[in-house]
Design a protein around this nucleic acid. Structure first.
Lengths: 414, 414
DNA sequence: AGCACTTATGTAGATCACCGGCAAATGTCA
DNA sequence: TGACATTTGCCGGTGATCTACATAAGTGCT
């Protein structure tokens, strides 16, 4: 079939995962023999993907030459659409961001407007970085139909339902394109580069304006059959009846999401129950971050609100942990960076309610990548697909990394 | 490394999954060339695993010889421990049960007593079937530490905590052994042979004396990091406070499991609110099945209890479906076979509460394998490991299928 | 029955990847 | 500087795989 190019991807993955490696290291990592490693490296050298690094550790004998991926060999574009802003980044083979641009947007302006802005940002990044990227990946804060590259009934993206985002952007840029969910992609980012490294069963939770999550089981990002696995934001919180944008009532996002907390903060400020919040309000509309600041100043009202939200989030996550028994829970998103009140409240509630067996060895950590997690995760998703056996073979055959390869396949590859 | 024996397993898997196949079919299924298929088949022929079948379909040319696995080539032992009974079965390569024995037990009698009975049953099956099985797999209705082959803090298995079930039985029988959770194994059985065929994201729910589940995502059975993924029986039902054997309160199992329903039935019978149940009680203690029969006779009290239980189960499963977005939910276990009241109530509650997006294309079906699902699933688990590249290579080297191979590896294999 | 056509299977030589061992290269360390 | 350690380049032998062709075993038409 693919004449041994099947495990060329293995070599690339090892190099991407563990930085520069000597031939010996590669043998250990991939299980291949020296001859095999050499052959694979030759193949990669012809594609101009690898280069010799400097010497390695001192062992008392001849120093091994470390082989590393050529960072400048190429890159992918990541487009991270949020509720109120978009970030476009060029991400190199190592997962590092070469260049990125952000711009505020209103997602409710609809696909043509917003995607137009995306293309502009992409152009500016492309002008800065030069060359042609291998692919472009887009993430959105809503449920995605992976096969068709569209969003379906997104609660916070009015006007986007069924719009062919993937193909529109792909054709506009002339690149292979992929569309996914933002929390899912960030989960992969944290799994590869961030707080979740090495935890083959891991859940990433994004606490932002909305609440979402990404589930990694068996080392594989799980999208579910309709592409909406991990949508914890719209799981019900017992006893709650607040209406949610999605049409249901009592959704976690509706009671403890950033939007919801901002609204509560405004209410408190208006009622005058908190001097701190009322004062803060002078500088503009309150948001969840303001609430967190108020809580750190010692404002009781704000503290209570955050603690309640944390407890509610923890309650839902306890359910998730008990069901999936991951070894790590990574918490990210805007809300997670504003003080410790919320996070510690989540922890407390989570450990109190989850099955002891499932939570005994559970680690709950803050995300390590911050804002970059999304674009890095998206890049990771693209690289997984770009270095799949099929695409690699296609590239080897043509002699260069060009064309618009098929990105719809799901790992694990064979 | 393994000299091309890596994809011998592929051939076996194709033959196991799709019955007798011609060489051409195998080429299509595995992606190998004819020469490769021939070589793999030769290898398998030397291990006495395959045989030529009769001719195949008429195509207008020479008829292809179908190749099939020799059913009598060997088998594995499955030991399915339940709360009140144990079943031992010999399962052949096709997943068919060659011979099986069941016997009532009291799991509370402790490991030595119960496992002694298991060994006896195994001996009887072995005497009947003859030959030496390749391995033995044990499943228990409790949380399992897969690495160590023990159960940990099992709610309904007093006296079994930390007992080395796997190694004890393996040594007693002189076979490679594996220990797992019953619902997990059954999930795999339904996925391969039963109602879940082809649904790579599937959840199996066992409604019996206890309630458990098995989660298959990406075509792989997910155990979770501590081995207790899918333990839906001890997820909390909102608003419920009944104490559970596990020490928590309001667990699904405590309010809607078979034990719980039996207790409720007794209460009703005692109170005299239902003539039917009071009458039934004459013939011995009531159980959940009696409740179901009473409901079918039109007894209102019984009907209400079942509907409530179904609604509670559906509520928890709605959560599971919304989170994991599987394409199929398979419901099995003793309770699922007693009438339609419970199941339809589960369905109603589930569809009403799950995210529309996650449940839109969801199929909810009854299990197809019945009692056999557990032992077949266990066998499937064993075969996955027995035909992994490493074990196959070991066997090829020694020339026969002997020894006690290592069964701790998890698929997917590479 | 005979013949053309289709498809599966067996076989042989060419080719390619891989393994193992050896020697050269490139270091360290005393 | 010389002994030693380790990596790396190189080459012949081996075996698996590929290609191509011949043969077997059918179907369907005349």
């Amino acid at each position: 079939m693919e004449r041994g190019s099947g495990d060329t991807g293995h070599v690339v993955r090892a190099l991407r995962g563990a930085g520069p490696l000597t031939r010996q290291d590669l043998m250990a990592h991939t299980g291949l023999t020296r001859a095999q490693v050499d052959q694979r490296l030759e193949q990669l050298r012809q594609l101009d993907l690898v280069e010799d690094g400097s010497g390695s550790v001192v062992t008392g004998g001849r120093r091994a030459r470390a082989i590393s991926l050529r960072r400048r060999a190429g890159y992918v574009l990541s487009v991270a659409l949020g509720a109120s802003g978009v970030t476009v980044a060029a991400v190199d083979l190592s997962g590092a961001i070469i260049d990125d641009r952000s711009q505020p947007i209103d997602i409710a302006a609809g696909p043509h407007d917003v995607l137009g802005t995306c293309v502009e940002l992409c152009q500016r990044v492309l002008d800065e970085v030069g060359g042609r990227p291998w692919a472009v990946g887009v993430t959105v804060p809503g449920p995605v139909d992976l096969d068709r590259g569209i969003v379906v009934s997104p609660p916070i993206m009015p006007g986007w339902d069924q719009f062919p985002i993937r193909d529109w952007l792909g054709d506009k840029l002339g690149l292979a394109a992929w569309l996914g969910n933002d929390a899912n992609a960030t989960a992969l980012g944290e799994y590869r580069y961030g707080a979740g490294k090495g935890h083959r069963n891991m859940v990433y939770v994004k606490l932002g304006s909305g609440i979402g999550s990404g589930i990694i089981m068996g080392g594989v990002l799980q999208h579910g059959d309709g592409g909406c696995a991990g949508d914890v934001g719209h799981l019900p919180v017992p006893g709650q009846t607040l209406p949610c944008r999605c049409g249901n009532i009592g959704c976690l996002e509706a009671v403890a999401g950033g939007f919801a907390l901002a609204r509560v903060a405004e209410e408190i400020a208006e009622s005058g129950r908190s001097g701190v919040l009322t004062a803060m309000r002078e500088n503009g509309p309150l948001n969840a971050a303001a609430l967190a600041r108020a809580a750190e100043y010692g404002d009781n009202e704000a503290l209570e609100v955050l603690q309640l939200a944390g407890a509610q989030i923890g309650e839902v996550l306890a359910f998730v942990v008990s069901l999936l028994n991951p070894s790590q829970l990574v918490i990210g998103g805007g809300l997670s960076y504003s003080g410790d009140v919320l996070l510690s409240s989540v922890r407390k509630s989570l450990y109190a309610r989850a099955l002891p067996l499932a939570s005994r060895d559970l680690l709950v950590r803050r995300a390590a990548l911050g804002e970059a997690g999304g674009v890095q995760g998206t890049a990771e998703l693209l690289y997984e697909r770009l270095f799949s056996p099929l695409v690699l073979e296609q590239w080897s055959r043509s002699g260069s990394l060009s064309g618009r390869p098929d990105l719809t396949l799901e790992p694990p590859f064979l």
